[in-house]
Design a protein around this nucleic acid. Structure first.
Lengths: 178, 178
DNA sequence: TTAAACATGTAAGCTGTTACATGATTTA
DNA sequence: TAAATCATGTAACAGCTTACATGTTTAA
């Protein structure tokens, strides 16, 4: 499937970037639906290069420090667009260790159970607030053909997802206290 | 972290089971938040056995066919309960290849984009309906100290999650058609 | 009698995480 | 001058998927 390959190609299709810049994107911007560590990114870039899907120019920052700025090739763009057009088979529901715990929660007393739910709630509230703040950068829907439109769509998805999780946690707390 | 270990211990804590039965649980009952193939389960059971957390009795079905029925040991129960009481640090948002695609969707024409969203919608509607049907088995909230209470909670979570995804997909379709 | 379900295992390969390893540049 | 950030890589290991491998029992 090689999703990381296409995540990288997609970003490079927007503009040339270094491995380090890609790494930052994955750990901030895209983190709501994709991410990767540098230890995965650098080898993948190497692979994409041998496959002829990207090229790079070496730049010098300061006196010595070399950085490789990667550019997507024509072949890379073709490959990326082909992937983008494919229909996605619904992914399996992602594994969720907290729900696994809740599944077995009848072995916990009510107090502990509620405490755990409240703890999760707190963490999700934080995440939701951060997402809402990011969303303030979009006072209106960005144009459909701009990079920012995709960003906006997934951000909206992340926000409603967090709202749903919070509603579920409240529902659970309600059942536990009944 | 070894979540599979605790998923297995948790199920064996309910009742003794064979690897095959565990496998079925993971691919049907629990699939909304955890799953594993038999190729992962058998080796894990072996490991749990060497760690002294489970034991097994060999049963014969028919004339020859041997099956191992695993039982959790006292040590296994202790280990499981310890895990169950631990507070869960919020997991990273799971990777989502469809959202990755939507992130880059400005390179698709409106028609293709809407078609993809509709396709996802169809698949989620199917899943939602299946979940709702399962939920009919719970005409009322099961008692808090029964196994079925945990099943019910995560089932409710799965249903509201699917509803949220459908709402998001509709929102996206709306933005695309604007 | 044959297909589906029962039943258990191993092997190869891919994905991803954590840790190891090194060094330059910028900012406080 | 020290800390943070920039910058690139490799290694070991954990987790998971797909395929390989074999054979039994049950129900249509």
């Amino acid at each position: 499937m090689r999703a990381l390959k296409y995540a990288i190609l997609g970003l490079l299709n927007r503009r040339p970037m270094t491995g380090y810049e890609l790494s930052k994107e994955f750990n901030f911007e895209l983190a709501e639906f994709w991410y990767a560590n540098h230890s995965q990114i650098y080898p993948e870039l190497k692979k994409l290069h041998t496959e002829g899907l990207v090229t790079y120019d070496v730049e010098i920052s300061g006196d010595i420090l070399e950085t490789k700025r990667y550019t997507i090739t024509e072949q890379g763009q073709k490959d990326f667009m082909q992937w983008l057009h494919k229909d996605e088979k619904l992914q399996r529901t992602p594994k969720n260790p907290f729900r696994l715990r809740m599944y077995f929660s009848n072995y916990l007393d009510t107090e502990t159970r509620v405490q755990m739910l409240e703890n999760q709630k707190m963490q999700h509230v934080k995440r939701l607030n951060a997402l809402k703040k990011t969303c303030e950068q979009y006072p209106e829907t960005p144009p459909k053909d701009s990079d920012r439109f995709g960003d906006f769509l997934v951000l909206r998805g992340a926000i409603t997802r967090e709202e749903q999780v919070l509603a579920w946690l409240d529902e659970c707390i309600g059942y536990c206290k009944e």
